[in-house]
Nucleic acid binder design. Sequence first.
DNA 1: TCTGGGGTCCTAGGACCC
DNA 2: TCTGGGGTCCTAGGACCC
Length: 437
Amino acid sequence: MNTQPLTIRSWPQAILHLDADAFFASCEQAIHPELRGRPVITGKERGIVAAASYEAKARGVQRGVRLSDVKKLCPDAVILPSDYETYSLFSVRMFEILRRFSPDVEEYSIDEAFVDLTGLRRSFHGPYEMIAEKMQKTIETELGLSVSVGVSLSKVLAKIGSKHRKPHGLTFIPGREIHRYLQDLPVGKVWGIGPNTAAFLNKFGITTALEFARTDEKFIEQRLSKPYQEIWHELNGRSVYPVVTESKSSYQSISKAKTFTPPSTDEAFVFAQLSKNLENACIKARRHKLAATRLMVFLRKQDFTDSGVELKLSRPTAYPVELFGPLREGFHNAYEPRTLYRQTGVVLAGLVSEAETQYSLFDDTAKIERMARIYDAVDQISRQFGKHTIQHAASLPTKLQAQHEGARGDTPKRTAELFRGENKRQKLGLPLLHIKV
DNA sequence: TCTGGGGTCCTAGGACCC
DNA sequence: TCTGGGGTCCTAGGACCC
């Protein structure tokens, strides 16, 4: 059953996990001092709470709550649209600070990092807790952000530590005390164990993280797959997950999906949504100099069931013109008339680097080169004048809706962007691109 | 958490080959 | 043609994460 042996590091590790507190809201408070001490919420563009400051959380505001309900709970809340660009800048600076302490920093997500501290006590002349505390202080004074930190023998334990006390917590879990942190922790709260596996374990009387950690190895090996065997070791203080330092440069897949309200039965509209997703996914792929060999298309119905198709492409590409054929084919396979759809999505998979795309004997190389030139120009214009200054005619039916949303009180900034692009396009006399190759 | 959007990794099972 | 053993590659789908 288990084919690959696990690699367990024999030397005890000191792994730190850092998690920013209410990250998006905290960034807003860091930039706008007048918001400090006030309940701040981001997620205006989605209509649900993406992040809530601790002042808002104290009033009962939780992630995912509808903004209309927030107003009842907390009428004085400051509700802002999420500004990912700004948050990313904070994120970059946070990682820079961490790298002053150790070269082994894993940027796990926009607001989380793992740091390998093993062996650093000597150079810092103090215990690991002290190093962690210094990091925390530096981030606070330089960026105005509060973070919670956990330090232990493995990534899974460090994560439990950083969650143990929030906000502004610092939890050190040495080997002898592991059991204290696991005994009251439901097994489903452990990083990597979801509701499904938790339910399975419950059937065998395993409900806490400690019970799981103390379960006989035979049971673990016979009844659970590799990821859970790894977690089991990590919980027992044996590190199997390394801190991955290299920044992620390449993707396995690129996907774009969008929900629209209200749901629609209109074939042309639904297809236009799909087409727009395809354009966005292709833009991202071209930015990373990647090309897809497989295309997945899916439609989500109102009842949240999906129907989807995967297609193999005759040659790796990130050019929508080449993909509209397969897209249409996939769409017609999945689409059922008179059905309400709420979301469409595409996935570009089997990504290879642009340089690797070779022409086959049957390709019309002149045509492909022409296409490459056209898209280079499209990408350049988009960079200058805004995304979707130029778009494919197939995506047109979504444009009307976008303007409508803008008018309905989308964030002023987005609306401005939308119209700025529009004006420039008109001034330049650029038509919506209709590519014929 | 009756439901955003973007990802990763693992496994079972079929197809195909010697 | 049948039987058996063994390997590799690929894909669908599950589970989980932020």
